[in-house]
Simulated scan of single mutants.
Amino acid sequence: MTGTDPAQQEQAHAELSGDYDIDVAHSRFGFMARHAMVTRVHGTFNDVDGVLHLDAGDLGRSTARVTLVADSIDTGVEQRDQHLRSNDFFDMPTYPEITFVSTAINGSAPSFEVTGDLTVKGITKPVTVDVEFTGAAVDPSGNHRVGFEVSGTLNRRDWGVNWNAAMEAGGMLVGDKVTLEIDISAIRRQE
């Protein structure tokens, strides 16, 4: 999304613009939350589907739609994952998907903000995340790829993910703040 003269910029914009599918094998939809007030627990959602529409000439006209299969949550500890899948946290049998649909993009590449509607447990609320465009390339298979790093913080209680337990020494077992740690590689659809 860079270039020195207008003709180069226009060509670069045309080469980057289009519809992209998220390449799940080369992306990571991660998160982090505090546990026992002393450590961080990291996790990912492994089953993800997403489509990006990139308008490199007018980033504000770009869009993103992402669906996470809630049951694919993975923190590396099966007992914890089962608890997260239960009604105490995500109630995944009732709410099998978590979705994000962009509503606005502000700023310009390489760093910009994306605002959208995040739906968790049937509750939809707006969130804004920071996005860093990390580059574009043609891979050995001839696929046109783009990359993004996404970060942000949200309060899980805003979406009804309220379970917690008091600790003997004071404080709560699970922090309310959830930090998003997302790396996206997306492949442009063939015309």
Rank of each mutant, 00 (worst) to 15 (best):
M1G: 15
G3C: 05
T4V: 15
A7G: 11
A7V: 15
Q8T: 12
Q9L: 15
Q11A: 13
A12L: 10
H13K: 14
A14F: 10
A14Y: 00
A14C: 05
S17P: 13
D19Y: 04
Y20F: 02
Y20D: 08
D23W: 04
A25K: 12
A25E: 15
A25F: 02
H26Q: 02
H26C: 00
H26K: 10
R28K: 15
R28D: 14
F31M: 05
F31Y: 12
A36S: 15
M37L: 07
V38A: 14
T39W: 07
T39P: 03
V41Q: 08
H42R: 11
H42N: 12
H42C: 01
N46G: 12
N46V: 06
N46R: 15
N46C: 05
L52T: 02
H53E: 11
A56Q: 08
G57K: 10
G60I: 04
R61A: 15
S62N: 10
T63N: 13
A64T: 09
A64G: 05
V66Y: 06
V66G: 11
I73R: 06
T75D: 05
D81E: 06
Q82A: 11
H83A: 11
L84C: 03
L84E: 07
L84A: 00
S86T: 07
S86C: 07
N87Y: 05
F90Y: 08
P93Q: 03
P93A: 01
T94S: 08
I98G: 01
S102D: 00
T103G: 00
T103Q: 01
I105N: 00
N106M: 10
S108W: 04
S108H: 12
A109H: 09
S111P: 01
F112A: 09
E113I: 09
V114M: 13
V114N: 03
T115D: 02
G116N: 00
G116H: 03
G116R: 09
D117T: 09
T119E: 09
V120G: 00
V120E: 12
K121V: 02
G122Q: 01
G122H: 05
K125R: 15
P126C: 13
T128V: 11
V131F: 10
E132F: 01
F133R: 14
G135H: 07
G135W: 03
D139M: 06
P140Q: 01
S141M: 15
R145M: 07
V146E: 10
G147R: 00
G147K: 04
E149V: 13
E149Y: 11
L154Y: 04
L154W: 03
N155M: 14
N155T: 07
N155H: 04
D158H: 03
W159G: 06
G160T: 10
V161T: 03
V161C: 00
W163P: 01
N164T: 02
A165R: 11
A166W: 09
A166G: 14
A166H: 14
A166S: 09
E168I: 10
G170Y: 08
M172S: 15
M172G: 06
L173M: 13
G175S: 05
G175L: 11
G175M: 08
D176A: 13
D176K: 12
V178C: 03
E181C: 06
S185W: 02
R188G: 02
R189K: 10
Q190P: 01
Q190M: 08
Q190T: 11
E191D: 12
E191R: 05
